[in-house]
Amino acid sequence: MILKTVGLSKDFGSLRAVNDVSLEIKEGTIRAVIGPNGAGKTTLFDLITNRTHPTSGKVYFQGKDITYLPPYKIVKLGIGKCFQISKLFPELTVFENIQIACISRARKVFNMYSPGNNAMRDEVLQIINSIGLTVLTDASAGYLSYGDQRRLEIGITLALQPTLLLLDEPTAGVSRAEGYEVMKLIKKLASERALTIVFIEHDMDIVFNYAEEITVMHQGTTIATGAPEAIKSNKQVQSCYLGETVC
């Protein structure tokens, strides 16, 4: 198990956003987390990376308890996270965006003497190439189209060379065609780098095309986990979620 959560819960005031979630994610798999809006998916991701503190429960990464580690340490251990709304450095170029991630990955953050403009150039260019943004190397991130921003977001996260990638709606706000492009890219990179991926997604076509395992959340709890086929035929899932969107 690369990632394991045990009884993870989060209260916001009187509202229980995440309720007793226990996940086990095997190395090298692609897991989708689905569920209607407000099911607590994003909060779950925030709990895993300790962006918000859990009310109770534990998170284990590669057997290590990471529940109360500060987020930057969790990232350093090898969990990369893409946000639902792209968090980039909008006024910096695509190159610089990736470069900052590379500097962090290479532990050169506190290097104050070597020239920085072309630091780690080869690695940066290679990543830009792999996310297909070579033409836009010198464009400011803030001016990219939404889909390209998603790619850049993924590229930044990949530059950290994570072993586990958390993607919060990688295709949100992107046209369906482009959404498939982004997912193809993710899948390709995942197989190249032996990544484990957990992603939140609303588009059922994408989920059933790309996920190897699916977890369904509803009102803060997980109501089902299993292979796509099993999920499709699960009555409870159909009644509370799939029934509304698919069929």
Partner: peptide, 29 residues
Amino acid sequence: STIMNSPFGKIAQGLRENEERLIFLGINT
């Protein structure tokens, strides 16, 4: 100018733009 042109200085610009992103790049901001 040496400091601000080093990798350290590059991070400074990232800090200006988006501190949370830096945290989620594994940097102790």
